[in-house]
Amino acid sequence: MGLVEVREKRAPRQKNTRSSDKALEIGLYVFAVLMLIVLIYPLYFIIIASFSEPAAVANGQVWLVPKDFTLAGYQELLKHSNIWIGYRNTILYTIVGTAIGLVVNISAAYALSRKDLAGRKYFSLLFIFTMFFNGGLIPTFMTIRDFHLYDTFLVMVLPFSVAAFNIIVARTFFQSSIPEDLWEAAQLDGCGNLRYFMTIVIPLSKAVISVIALWTAVGHWNSYFNALIYLKDTSLYPLQLILRNILVTNQMQSAMGTGEAAAIALRLANIMRYAVIIVATVPIMCIYPFVQKYFNQGVMIGAVKS
């Protein structure tokens, strides 16, 4: 009888526990959905606003669907032929810059992860120091000029290819996710550091390489400040700088004009604003679904094992 009574007392507790777990799970799902809406809606709003009349957007009439559907923003934007030059340059900067960044940062991260590297802690401190302090804009400009990189293609992909944060992330991944036993086994087979890095470490590090590649590619795609400072040849301008110049020109025309001409220029400036965001953002966003799996895996592996 005693065992039966104990079991009867435990049963309600288990039901209460399951009910509370179910309620917590539902609450988490509701919270996740709300956060998803909060994060996605601004992007959705930009999309529908780019197809709406500026007056409707300004008056708060655009919520879920475009108001007074129009393609005027995209049509006006595509009238500028230098946009295609900007696309070409940005794609080249992104591809070449990402490739150089991966070679530099992944190699440096692997070297810093090796315990047999002389002065490893000293070099790590040097990289970390650059995350908080730099030489400043004027010394950097003078250095680039003295190396004859000013107003060249390489100035957009070479001088700023080293990213200390990416190196630290990749180094942490190598230290926490690549077993040291693999290196010992490779040494027994006569494998050196370079061969071990190329044939064993790289294939096992697809996750973190994808993460670093995505971060580097997004940085190059969105970069405009370096082009603004170190480029004067308009044929080398990236897309972001060209779009910025178009917006600035239209805003200046609307500010300097009078009467109906000013109103037309202001309308075009407002309607192009959202179209510019879509044109500049959508291409790089299309890449994310292909690396999402590696992105999540690369971030979580280092977080769990570190």
Rank of each mutant, 00 (worst) to 15 (best):
P139H: 12
V211G: 02
R18V: 13
I178T: 10
S176V: 02
C191E: 03
V96F: 07
I264K: 13
F45Y: 15
Q251F: 11
Q187P: 01
I278T: 03
F127A: 13
R244V: 06
K15S: 13
T143V: 10
T281E: 10
S223H: 00
P283Q: 00
F69C: 01
Q292E: 14
I85G: 07
I278R: 07
T249Y: 12
I40R: 00
F173V: 03
I246M: 05
A11E: 15
I212T: 12
F129S: 07
S19L: 10
I178D: 10
A72T: 14
G119R: 09
A23H: 09
Y288Q: 12
D189M: 00
I83T: 03
Q175T: 15
L39E: 01
F141R: 02
P283D: 02
F141I: 04
N226A: 14
M272C: 10
V104F: 13
G257W: 06
D116K: 08
I212P: 03
W215Y: 09
G219R: 01
E76K: 14
S205E: 04
L137F: 01
A186F: 11
A55T: 12
L126C: 14
A207K: 01
Y29S: 11
P203W: 07
L239Q: 02
H80I: 11
A280R: 04
L117Q: 05
D146C: 00
R273Y: 12
G302W: 00
A255Y: 08
S235T: 08
L71R: 10
M285T: 00
F132R: 00
A32C: 13
N226Q: 14
G2H: 15
S161A: 15
V155I: 11
I48W: 08
M1I: 10
K115L: 12
D21T: 07
E53F: 00
Y29D: 12
T249G: 11
Y150T: 02
L126I: 13
L149R: 07
G73D: 05
V279Y: 07
A217F: 09
A255V: 00
M35V: 13
K79C: 01
N59M: 12
A72W: 06
D146F: 03
Q253V: 06
K67A: 10
